[in-house]
Nucleic acid binder design. Structure first.
Lengths: 164, 164
DNA sequence: ATTTTACGTCAACCATATTGACATATATTG
DNA sequence: CAATATATGTCAATATGGTTGACGTAAAAT
């Protein structure tokens, strides 16, 4: 398929192949994250808000610490975004019953609505790519991406993905 | 394979499948971009510098305008990063011969060295994922990612990838 | 009773992006 | 040739989203 400079130096080919994989990921992510921008900016929100409501939506009742672990940011950084979302009525916190120090995060109906609207073009993009590539390709896409994720996180992600 | 809540609501399944695809991309990109950080920070550089030298490396002699088009940032934003890289001897500009307004960007040997060092863990990560997933999966990965990229850019990327 | 954990908040700072305005050199066009 | 458009650079102000560090409170764990 790709077949660049093959025959010559297998080490070069390998390096080239890897760099292609890196570049494709960069481009795909670049375009993929540009989708929600229009909707978000109109709302006065940014990508950080999008990521936040996405993961609250996918993990209803997630605690602050868990969310921090997913986003890989500091609590001070999340704080700003989260309090804006709460203030404007898209997210609510519920004190944990078993552990009352915890704050479980939930989207309000407005939050669900916002999340759906914001991610709509993104889902459409993925849907189109899936359709064009076919089921086998999608399977490969999943496999490779999963392999790119830090080993320690994979099982947790698999779990979250199963009953997202 | 994934088979979540199948049988029930095909629309739900579809939505779920798409959200998985989105999430995988998020996680993979998150971990994948964290790789070069250590090396970069030690150098006093950031991810913007990495992206810049990556694309100059892959497109030797690229003009400023072309680079801006790839990175999708403003020239003011690129300017800072680029002048730092030039100042510290990792990048040089050469005036165009055909069009002398243009500045063609090249990595110095030090720049090539830096790029290689910075991207090394990233290439290793991709190599591992490719190895684990197998050739067919890699083909699918490529196909889907290509489909995620804005249609207008695909041919240009394909070209750049061919003789990168 | 003490220590640890989960969360929140204040404050300073940094990297990276933006918009807008303007300047220079060169190419293109009428 | 004159006028205009293009490629690049630069100054300035601003926004977003991240960081570190310090400290506080409530509740859980030891």
């Amino acid at each position: 398929m790709v077949d660049v400079k093959s025959g010559a130096n297998p080490l070069f080919l390998r390096d080239e192949e890897l760099r292609q994989g890196i570049e494709l990921l960069f481009y795909a992510y670049r375009d993929f994250t540009s989708d929600p921008d229009a909707v978000l900016i109109a709302q006065g929100f940014g990508r950080a808000h999008h990521r936040t409501i996405h993961f609250i939506n996918r993990n209803t009742g997630i605690t602050v610490a868990e969310l921090l672990g997913i986003l890989r940011i500091t609590k001070q950084s999340l704080s700003r975004v989260l309090s804006q979302l709460i203030e404007r009525g898209f997210v609510v916190q519920r004190q944990g019953t078993r552990d009352r120090r915890q704050r479980h995060l939930h989207l309000t109906p407005e939050g669900v609505e916002l999340e759906r609207k914001v991610s709509e073009p993104q889902r459409a993009r993925v849907a189109r790519a899936y359709r064009e590539a076919g089921a086998d390709a999608v399977e490969g896409y999943r496999k490779v991406l999963m392999g790119l994720i830090n080993e320690g996180d994979r099982t947790a992600i698999l779990r979250s993905i199963r009953h997202g």
